[in-house]
Design a binder for these strands. Structure first.
Length: 857
RNA sequence: GCGGACGUGGCGGAAUGGUAGACGCAGCGGACUUAAAAUCCGCUUCCCCCUGGGAGUGUGGGUUCGAGUCCCACCGUCCGCACCA
């Protein structure tokens, strides 16, 4: 009997897999394909527990599907562009490329240590010209199709990172990476026309039945389709120059048109800007409006302010009625038409505004039961159902029919039509950064923006750049941006913006199909491998990466580059690895002085936990359980765990203690428990001996348990309930031990099934066990064990017998026994009869193989 | 404000509408040991008049023979969106 030494065993089996090139995916194998992908990591320099959990989950799926007979594609790459590399350059003077590539090398080694079943021959990095050059080719295709375009717009400007951010990257008014308050700036930027696919992206969600509802709902809300009407208000009196046709507004409540008391324009509305040209006071007001506009929290608190422009428009249903046109800070310029009609009685914002400026509040929807003669709106707008009144031809209609009637009238008058509007905005992809994919465009005075010719791709980043001052190093580079126009040959300027790194991650899954192909995407390979059958990553990308990738996939499919329109058939969003925090008092500013877990000893006395600092003996406070982060020092590095317990124990623990979609709390006790399992499992394998002769009568018990375990573990892995699957594996150990005396054949059946069942979770141990059991080849190539349904069922099952819903007795019956027969046996049972004394049975409920309930009184 | 998810022992968590608390951690008891560690075995929701019985899945109601699970209301926690007309 030898103690299992993971440090000696694990590298040996990794070497065997590597030598056999076990995980190379081969599209010609003839097997059905299965593509498993985890969101690729940013190469920060070190693998943390969150990475480990993510990749181990993917690995479980990958190994399980291999065993099920699938040809599995499970690749790895690096999302390698981005700010941290530039920060490192600024702080430490190291070149972003060197920093990134050395991080990749370090992280690759750390990942390999985890024993992941990855096809490393497909590794790619987005910062490799071989990758981003092809991305430039894809960008040019989008440019040719009008899906990439330039426009001047107000953008989210991150003053710390000195760059533009997409709407999706602004969280609570702050940059998603820097945390700085975002400002509004007007810049000319590149956009990708994601709105072209708004409806398709929304409809496509319905087909993603293996995505979490939560993510689908988040995308649905983000796309934000709303149905309403667009209508034009004609001028009453003089029209501003260039806007003679009138003012167009968007509304979802055309039924309340008669309740309009003003028109509102966004401060950036062209009419507002036109008027401001000759009106310094108005110009000052517009500036005032923009000022508060940065933070969402501020917006919420912000006072509604407005100004009457003096312009008047005619009500579309009553030309004699003149309605004033205001400019108001709460109207968004980039939603709908940037103009609204205000109906204060039935919209809270409009009501707040009307009350402040003394505008009328005519009600037009009468709540059920209200008196039309006296109904008034006070400080709360009425937004519920009701009957339209005070509205001429709409009077008496319910809200929905009234909307239809109003739209019909507008259409008849040629003043409007039903319209669908989306909350989704086009994706701004220009970044004023160095460490990203250069946008392959040349700006020519004469020809405008011209795509870089294909034979000049990739447009490579120049290496000789400086990071000693803020701003874009590409812009400062002495020569790089100067070039000739590909069309006229004249002097021209290279685009110095680079692409948002989310573009890089919007097609990498397709590149993995053939990462060495000359074309950006090898169509045949992509058609074979895509879609990704199981994608795994954090829920934080629900509306960023996952929406962009769906968009780009559609755009590329429409250019004929591949067939699938949905890149990820199955999505799983995994939880984080969290850890308790510890601190020793607080500093002057009130911040806790964090202490790393390695320096903490926990004691439990009378149920109360207390923490002590090992190095100093100081008493510590126990803080919240939070995501592992360097700032709170509650980090446990995978490397430490591998050194102390081996890879398998670590893999097992991150999956065992919580459902995969939920956070898992790292605890010293938990990893100890996982490690104990590895040791005890090995003891069972290692004690295997040909053993006793078969005795069907005796061996059947172990065989039944074996098949029940196969069934339960299979269902657990299949349903992404890894924690439950592992619990069943834990529970199988004592069974193996109790049946040590079983016949050699039954025991080998049990142990060989056990080795294959644990293989996805603890692959190294499984290989060692496989060898110890004398099985041929490697367990990684062995088929998944199947179970015999007859054996997986119990020979006798215990049915609880309830009286009036309370458990009073139990009875043993063979499974599948006819309910009538169960009833007869239950009623004949002595114990049952004693519980029924003095009662009359009114009803007997027998649920086959489940329960008996006697209703008596 | 709108939308969504979730509330189960000391802790993480199990339970196709059918024996609530699997499995792990922590705790307690025992075996082995000169001793400790490691290992192994057992106990461990709470309460009581303890060979048994009662209560129990955030609170209150409802549906059902039967509810942790389904429905309604409330409380709490977390997540997303947030002046989107």
């Amino acid at each position: 009997m030898t103690r299992y030494d993971p440090k000696a065993v694990e590298p040996r089996h990794r070497a065997r897999w590597e030598a056999a090139d076990t995980f190379r995916a081969d599209s010609a194998s003839g097997k059905p394909k299965y593509y498993v992908l985890e969101m690729f990591p940013y190469p920060s320099g070190a693998i943390h527990m969150g990475h480990a959990r993510n990749y181990v989950m993917g690995d479980v799926v990958s190994r399980y599907k291999r065993a099920q007979g699938f040809e599995v594609l499970h690749p790895m790459g690096w999302d390698a562009f981005g700010m941290p590399a530039e920060n490192a350059a600024m702080e430490r003077g190291v070149h972003p490329a060197d920093w990134t590539w050395s991080n990749i090398a370090a992280m690759r080694d750390q990942l390999k240590l985890l024993g992941l079943s990855i096809d490393w021959s497909r590794e790619l990095a987005t910062c490799d010209p071989a990758y981003y050059g092809r991305q430039q080719a894809l960008f040019l295709k989008l440019f040719e199709r009008g899906l990439a375009y330039r426009k001047e717009s107000l953008v989210n400007w991150d003053p710390v990172d000195n760059t533009v951010l997409a709407n999706e990257q602004v969280i609570d008014g702050r940059g998603w990476r820097s945390g700085a308050m975002v400002e509004k700036r007007k810049l000319t930027q590149w956009f990708l026309r994601i709105t072209h696919y708004a409806d398709d992206l929304l409809e496509g969600l319905k087909t993603l039945d293996r995505w979490p509802d939560k993510v689908r709902l988040m995308q649905e809300n983000w796309i934000g389709r709303s149905l309403g009407a667009r209508l034009t208000w004609r001028w009453a009196g003089e029209a501003p120059a260039g806007f003679e046709d009138g003012l167009e507004v968007y509304t979802t409540r055309p039924d309340t048109l008669s309740g309009a008391s003003f028109l509102g324009l966004a401060p950036d509305h062209p009419v507002a800007e036109l008027l401001a040209k000759d009106d310094p006071e108005l110009a000052a007001f517009l500036t005032e409006c923009r000022k508060g506009g940065a933070s969402q929290a501020e917006i919420e608190q912000a006072e509604k302010i407005g100004r009457d422009t003096g312009l008047r428009v005619q009500h579309p249903f009553d030309a004699d009625r003149a309605v004033p046109v205001w400019i108001a800070n709460f109207i968004l310029s980039d939603y709908g038409t940037g103009a609204i009609f205000g109906c204060p009685a039935h919209d809270q914002r409009d009501l707040d505004f009307a009350r402040k400026y003394g505008l009328p509040v005519p009600p037009v929807v009468l709540p059920p039961g209200a008196d039309p003669a006296t109904f008034e709106v006070g400080t709360e707008a009425y937004v519920g159902p009701g009957v339209i009144f005070n509205s001429d031809f709409l009077d008496g209609l319910e809200v929905e029919p009234a909307k239809a009637a109003a739209i019909a009238r507008l259409e008849a008058q040629g003043q409007g039509e039903g319209a669908t509007v989306y909350r989704l905005r086009d994706w701004g992809v220009s970044r004023q950064r160095y460490w990203g994919c250069p946008i392959p465009i040349i700006h020519c005075e004469a020809c405008g923006p011209v795509g870089v010719p294909h034979d000049q791709l990739p447009v490579e980043l120049p290496r000789d750049v400086t990071f000693d001052q803020p701003g874009n190093p590409l812009e400062r580079h002495p020569t790089w941006k100067h070039t000739a126009c590909p069309q006229c040959g004249g002097q021209a300027r290279r685009e110095t913006d680079t692409l948002d790194t989310f573009v890089d991650s919007s097609w990498y899954f397709a590149r993995f199909a053939d990462p060495h192909a000359d074309a950006p995407i090898n169509g045949a390979a992509a058609d074979f491998w895509l879609p990704v059958d199981q994608y795994i990553g954090g829920v934080e990308h629900a509306v960023l990466h996952l929406l962009y990738a769906r968009f780009i996939t559609r755009a590329l499919a429409d250019q004929g580059l591949m067939k699938v329109r949905e890149p990820f058939a199955g999505l799983f969003t995994q939880g984080m690895v969290v850890h308790e925090t510890y601190f020793e008092g607080r500093d002057e500013s009130g911040k806790p002085r964090w202490v790393e877990p390695a320096d903490v000893r926990i004691e439990t006395v009378d149920g109360k936990r207390s923490a002590t600092r090992v190095s100093t003996g100081a008493a510590l406070s126990i803080g919240d359980i939070e995501k592992m982060s360097k700032s709170k020092k509650n980090v446990v590095a995978p490397q430490e765990i591998v050194d102390a317990y081996g890879v398998d124990a670590g893999r097992l623990f991150v999956l065992s203690d919580s459902p995969p979609e939920r956070d898992v709390q790292w605890t010293p006790g938990g990893i100890e428990g996982a490690s104990r399992f590895v040791q005890r499992a090995w003891t069972e394998f290692d004690s295997f001996a040909p053993g006793a002769p078969a005795d069907p009568e005796r061996d059947i018990v172990l065989r039944r348990e074996t098949h029940k375990t196969i069934k339960a573990v299979t269902e657990g892995v299949e349903g992404f309930r890894f924690n439950s699957a592992i619990a069943r594996l834990y529970a199988f150990l004592p069974i193996l031990r109790q049946h040590a005396g079983a016949g050699g054949e039954a025991r080998l059946e049990a142990l060989s099934a056990f080795a294959r069942l644990i293989a996805p979770f603890v692959p190294h141990l499984a290989e060692e066990a496989w060898t110890r059991l004398g099985q041929p080849g490697m367990v990684v190539d062995a088929p998944w064990p199947s179970f015999d349904p007859a054996l997986a069922a119990d020979e006798l099952i215990t049915l609880p017998v309830q009286v009036n819903g309370k458990r009073r007795a139990e009875i043993q019956v063979p499974p599948g026994l006819d309910p009538a027969e169960v009833e007869t046996r239950v009623l004949a049972d002595a114990e049952v009869r004693s519980k029924l004394e003095g009662l009359t049975i009114r009803k007997v409920v027998v649920v086959k193989d489940r329960i008996v309930n006697l209703v008596a009184g």
